[in-house]
Design a protein around this nucleic acid. Structure first.
Lengths: 156, 156
DNA sequence: GTCAGTGCAAACTTTTTGCAACTAC
DNA sequence: GTAGTTGCAAAAAGTTTGCACTGAC
């Protein structure tokens, strides 16, 4: 499925969501959805805002960005992450390979990694008195760069 | 192992850490460690501060709390969590049963749940070019209360 | 035409920082 | 004695909110 097709699907899903929830279909919202589905990997509000301004696709305020990203999260089109710093990160969730996140505790870099077995194991878990909808697994540690740097000269 | 014994062990570990890192052994730091290891479950800085003030164990400022909790996290005596709101939560990590977290997306309640198999599965995972030290698994969904409330009258 | 949605700036919350006073070493 | 720590208050960073204006329905 090409990225354009994924975008079209996302727009369709978003339209359904907006209609089902009696929300207006504003150009801002679609512009944001489009920007999100043009991104690769993780992004934060600040970065998304800058990208949209730079590409001059559409002018949206930060407030609208926060607003809309919540709708997208609720619609299941975006996943929200909090990796450890106090900035929320997001990523598109349609047609992405299920993956986990490796977070470097030194430089903060986040990389994805795929493990079908782990995916299956987590999906299989029974949670008593809890209706699960999604999950996030963050593995913390040192990335290759920081690990070698740390071995050579451990800081402080 | 009684909680007093765990506390003693934690103090010992903290002392080793502080000495190994050339940091001072201030009464504030031990008071904070003690407060942390007197807590059950999750807490945030605000709550910890209030508890310490109310119990008048020791007066510490928020700044010192932030400072010290970072040391404790680095020493592996405390684990930091970001469940979705923009407040960091913490929990003691010595002599606790490995567990995962169920986060209710509606009321924000966090409950723990234990799964030895899942624990094993995650520990077993090979991460390429990454030296893992810890991980956190958050399962999002609806707790029993919110799920039944939602079935009766879905709010949006 | 109406009211939800937007933009802007101000407010708010959580965390970090600067600096004088303090104290562990 | 000295440099690392603390407390306070001010600042920073991220997010939310109030309000007048706009535009989707």
């Amino acid at each position: 499925m090409s990225n354009e097709e994924v975008k079209a699907l996302a727009r369709e899903r978003f339209t359904e969501y907006l209609e089902a929830h009696g929300q207006r279909k504003t150009p801002e919202r679609y512009a944001i959805l489009d920007a999100v589905y043009s991104s690769k990997g993780h992004f934060d509000i600040e970065g998304l805002h800058r990208t949209m301004v730079d590409d001059s696709r559409f002018h949206v305020s930060r407030a609208t960005l926060y607003n809309t990203i919540d709708l997208l999260a609720d619609a299941g089109l975006v996943v929200k992450h909090q990796f450890g710093d106090h900035t929320a990160h997001y990523e598109r969730s349609l047609q992405t390979t299920p993956h986990h996140h490796l977070v470097c505790t030194q430089c903060g870099k986040v990389t994805e990694f795929v493990s079908a077995e782990l995916e299956r194991d987590i999906a299989r878990v029974q949670t008593p008195d809890f209706r699960k909808t999604s999950y996030t697994l963050y593995i913390y540690g040192l990335c290759a760069d920081c690990a070698t740097a740390g071995t050579a000269a451990r800081k402080h």
